[in-house]
Each structure stands twice: as structure tokens, then as C-alpha cells.
Amino acid sequence: MTVYFLCVVLLTMGLYCLVAKKNIVKKVIGLVIMDYAVNLYLIIIGYKKGGVAPVVERGMNSAMLERFVDPLPQALVLTSIVIGLGVLALMVAMCIRIYERHGTFDMSQISKLRG
């Protein structure tokens, strides 16, 4: 139970970083922390105490298969990491472009759209 709680703590830390920091690169870092908190959460869902990696090898019997951790969340996390990579690349590229246009990373100076 504690580990789930810690995941939520990590998630809120990321959210805090996203909301409170003005520097857009720090916002990106906050978002990545949130992303990884959720990945961690998914991994913990599939974890079993004393479990082993779900890789079938020669000469395994069904008792050993019982000890496998759930492989599905791991597949989900892999997909989610790939998606996160794509989003991160886009975000970093956008940060660089914003720096080119505005000469600053400070969101409060960049922000012009309102109303």
C-alpha cells in the first residue's frame, strides 16, 4: 500500500513542479516526473512478492511459471515510455523554438495570449 502512496506523492511532486515553476524547461521536467510516476505505478500493479522476470527458458515447469510477475503492465509501460519519448522530443524542440523566438525560458514573459 505504501508504494502506491509513494507513486501518488511522486505524481503530485511532478504536478507541483509543473504548476509552480516558471521556467518552461522545468515544467517539462515536472511533466516527465509525472509520466514516470505513472509508469512506476503500472509496474507495481504487476509486481508479485518474490516474483521472477516473465521469460520462458528451456526446461521450465508450471510451478516456475506461477512465480512470474504479470508481464502485461510491463508491455504497457514500454509503450508508455515510447510515447513519453515522443512527447519529450516534441516538448524539447518546442522549448528551443520558443527560446529562439522570445530569448527566454520564462513563461511569464512568454505569455501573450490571454482574454
Binding site: 509525472m34 509520466d35 510515447i83 516538448m91 518546442m94 523554438r97 520558443i98 523566438r101 512568454i110 495570449l113
Partner: peptide, 20 residues
């Protein structure tokens, strides 16, 4: 352009929070 990047960045951040 400056506006488009700013709007895109806002959309990106909030959209990613939604995805999380």
C-alpha cells in the same frame, strides 16, 4: 510563430497532464 509556439506549448503541457 511566437503565438503559435506559445499556444502549442500550453496545449502540449495540458494535454500531457490529461494523458498521465
Amino acid at each position: 510563430e511566437a503565438d503559435e509556439l506559445e499556444a502549442g506549448f500550453k496545449y502540449l503541457v495540458l494535454g500531457s497532464v490529461a494523458s498521465v
